[in-house]
């Protein structure tokens, strides 16, 4: 999958570079691109590490569990009877709270645990995997409260207030999650 995307990008660069006569710049980009990658990692790395540290403090102090508990009504609304299963509920709330805090690396293991449990529940009750699909759609839509990585990129290019995009991110995320859930609900009916 990624290999195809990569080959496509490089082939396009080669063809367009030849057509527009900018092969010199394309050649130079192999060096400047690699340098930019280091620069990007340096500009997001500090912030990423800092929030990983704060997340660890939240885990140890029980604050993560409190956040997860606050999400219970939402999980009940989205996952209906599956929310009664303690194991599924715990994994779902962990997955969602990690997503909210913008920690994708912590969200995926919990999400996979939740998906496995929902899959088992669906099997036991002879249902389709609709709850699993809903979980997948929620994870592709990413409801993020604190987009620290993007804020760090903005800060590194001298943004006046790197976090001033927050309300706009919240609005766009919330609408995207709502559209994703709605689309999943509607398509579930069409797919029968």
């Amino acid at each position: 999958m990624m290999s195809r995307v990569l080959v496509f990008l490089l082939a396009a660069a080669l063809v367009f570079g030849a057509v527009t006569g900018r092969m010199g710049q394309v050649s130079q980009a192999t060096i400047s691109g690699a340098r930019e990658a280091v620069r990007l990692l340096l500009s997001i790395g500090g912030s990423l590490c800092l929030w990983s540290g704060l997340m660890e403090v939240m885990d140890r102090s029980g604050l993560s569990r409190t956040v997860a508990r606050l999400l219970r009504p939402l999980i009940r609304f989205l996952f209906r009877e599956d929310a009664n299963d303690a194991e599924a509920r715990a994994a779902l709330s962990q997955n969602m709270s990690a997503n909210l805090l913008g920690l994708g690396s912590a969200a995926t293991p919990a999400g996979l645990r939740a998906a496995a449990r929902l899959h088992t529940l669906a099997r036991q009750q002879g249902r389709g995997d609709d709850s699993v699909f809903l979980l997948i759609v929620l994870n592709t839509a990413s409801l993020q409260l604190l987009p620290t990585t993007v804020a760090a990129v903005r800060a590194s290019y001298g943004a006046r207030a790197p976090y001033d995009i927050l309300p706009a991110v919240w609005l766009a995320s919330a609408v995207s999650v709502a559209v994703g859930v709605l689309a999943a609900r509607l398509m579930k009916r069409w797919c029968r």
Binding site: A12, G17, A34, L41
Partner: peptide, 24 residues
């Protein structure tokens, strides 16, 4: 986490920078 994402960032950023330089 940084170490995990760096290889992907390096590969993609190099490819994307080349593509941008080509004018595409």
């Amino acid at each position: 986490t940084c170490a995990q994402i760096f290889p992907a960032i390096l590969v993609m950023l190099t490819a994307v920078t080349m593509l941008r330089a080509s004018g595409a």
